[in-house]
Nucleic acid binder design. Structure first.
Lengths: 142, 142
DNA sequence: GGTGTTGCATCGTAACGCGATACATCCGGT
DNA sequence: ACCGGATGTATCGCGTTACGATGCAACACC
């Protein structure tokens, strides 16, 4: 099933390259792990936090459509639908009609969602400060 | 359920801070998404690729114990056991006895696992080059 | 040599993302 | 103004996966 046209564009990797790649992945896992434990302590699932952050952190706006969220979260549309359903059931987000497109839905944060997200995001900022350069992707300017 | 002792250590976040946090998360999701689609095209699950990479990329070694892998993958021990089981079933890794500790197990790559990992890792290196600064974590030196 | 600790493994369970599918709304061409 | 294709949201059933609980063998220390 290997696609024939995705040949790598460079020399084979050295032991150090594998280590660098693995360390980066390790950094990501550590960060996501911290995130998961933190948000769960506040009664949210990791996906819910990501949803709230994607809404509040949407460029130049404070809301987003389901489709836009699917792009930002890199999920299928209906996965986001279910995610929004669960978050709405917990009072974290709300659906409001889109002003110009009757198909689309504006997903917005509730006051509660706003409050929790503020606290969780501050904790994530602190953790990012703490991890510092551990999260930097490797470079290959050898 | 909110722990009382995890108060954030800084000022509340601005809109830009939320956007920076969301963009970083977006970068991670995009990278993981690329990774998932790439490795699946080669018949592996994302976890299996991470497993192989963690073994080959283990500092100063080419093997690791289940426990060490659990740390690097940020999983519980038995989750790694099951992961190794599946990977072993596909001929990607092997278990060999630990030389000095009869409890522990050395998890090593097979020739097949080695081959696939080399190709996949090269593709990941290319993708990291492509994403460039998009994966840099935000900084708060405001 | 007994007791606590460490490492690997098994079983049942719950959550999550997905494919397949359905339906309403928008848009462009004639 | 209409009709076909595209777009956006939603529902259902399923497979995968990480987990908690539990068990067992091997080590370490006094």
């Amino acid at each position: 099933m290997a696609a024939p046209d995705d040949a790598p564009g460079g020399p084979p990797l050295s032991k150090r390259d594998f280590e660098a790649l693995a360390r980066f992945r390790f950094g990501i896992r550590r960060y996501l792990r911290f995130s998961e434990e933190t948000v769960r302590r506040h009664g949210l699932t990791p996906q819910q936090y990501q949803l709230l952050l994607a809404i509040k952190g949407f460029p130049d706006r404070d809301w987003a459509t389901v489709r836009e969220l699917a792009d930002r979260l890199q999920l299928r549309h209906h996965s986001v639908v279910e995610l929004v359903n669960r978050a709405q059931g917990q009072g974290l987000v709300d659906r409001t009609p889109h002003p110009t497109d009757a198909r689309a839905v504006r997903v917005v944060l509730t006051a509660e969602g706003e409050r929790i997200l503020a606290r969780l995001s501050a904790l994530h900022r602190d953790e990012l400060r703490r991890q510092d350069t551990a999260l930097f992707p490797p470079t290959w300017e050898g």
